[in-house]
Design a protein around this nucleic acid. Structure first.
Lengths: 179, 179
DNA sequence: TGTTCTCCATACATATATGTATGGAAATGT
DNA sequence: ACATTTCCATACATATATGTATGGAGAACA
């Protein structure tokens, strides 16, 4: 009989951790509070993870997977004007998890390393995209930097953009990209 | 005889707090650890501040003063091409305190409020600058958003920019500003 | 000189979090 | 049925941080 009912898996803990991280920041990644939110004791936590450091590592690795998966989806979709749809997806969404991880990375070396790894991949893709759009290679790097900076700033500021606002912003961004 | 020697003032605590904030993030703003770093006991802390919440508020207010002071300096200097010198100052510097406060603001409502207040003032100034540079007012807002986002992204990423890199980036930024 | 006020140390109570040790219930394998 | 493995609860020891209560050393003031 498969009555696994309420028993938790390692991924359940990671899921709860990512949720807490997105909602309340890295300070919420405690075995104690997470156990309470999951309705279990810390005995479960220390069964699935050696210590909080290992849990944090697992959280970061899980986030990297998610971030990388997003890159793959962006690469796959949008055959026509890929940059425009990419920017739209990146700038029109609210990204509390991304924001929390980056805030975390300002103080935690391991989070910082993960973030830098993801940044490198993303910028590489954007730069390739610009070059495919006939932007001179020597200008593509600096433009990519600015566009990616703007994305990070948008993520950090967490402000909602209305549709008419986005239209104006998108125009300026595309102008910057392929001017 | 004025032998006040080693006695601390309220501003000494704030100074140590801002230092710890810039170096280690908001998690370092504890009465306990700061007292150790200052070589005193927490008795001193609770003499100058009612509780940690009041200390945090004072830290944020102090930061707001510093941030506003920076705006004033930017307004005062650079009569010629103000935008270029403004961008140079903003993007060529490493700003660990600004970075720490903004990371803090992602999780702390009071920090978030302070940050939004400073953001509004800064963007207002930049937008005015663009309009003075003959940018159409209806386009100035969205360009200001992008430029300010890029600034925030640069602050967050904390990467060092070499001089030749900066020249290329500055060209693209100015092109975006007054295209 | 004596008093008052400033600033800080010490001690205490409390809260929260970590990590370990031990045992137990339920599912799984034999 | 029995043993084993998985997963979790409980209890304990420890660490760190908050906030308060009390007193004391020293500067400022009269």
């Amino acid at each position: 009989m498969d009555m696994k009912a309420d028993r938790l898996t390692c991924r359940d803990w990671l899921k709860a951790g990512l949720r807490a991280l997105a909602e309340s920041g890295a300070a919420a990644l405690k075995a104690d509070s997470l156990a309470k939110s999951l309705g279990v004791s810390r005995g479960s936590f220390y069964w699935h993870f050696a210590d909080v450091g290992a849990f944090h590592d697992a959280i970061l690795q899980r986030w990297q997977q998610i971030a990388f998966q997003n890159i793959v989806e962006e690469l796959a979709g949008a055959p026509g004007d890929r940059l425009e749809s990419l920017l739209s997806r990146a700038f029109r969404a609210d990204s509390p998890l991304e924001r929390a991880v980056r805030a975390w990375a300002t103080a935690e070396p391991r989070a910082k390393a993960m973030v830098e790894s993801v940044d490198t991949k993303r910028r590489f893709y954007v730069e390739k995209l610009l070059i495919e759009m006939a932007v001179p290679p020597e200008r593509a790097a600096s433009r990519t930097r600015i566009i990616y900076w703007a994305y990070l700033g948008h993520v950090l500021s967490a402000e909602k953009i209305s549709s008419p606002e986005w239209n104006a912003i998108a125009n300026e961004l595309l102008l910057l990209a392929r001017a």
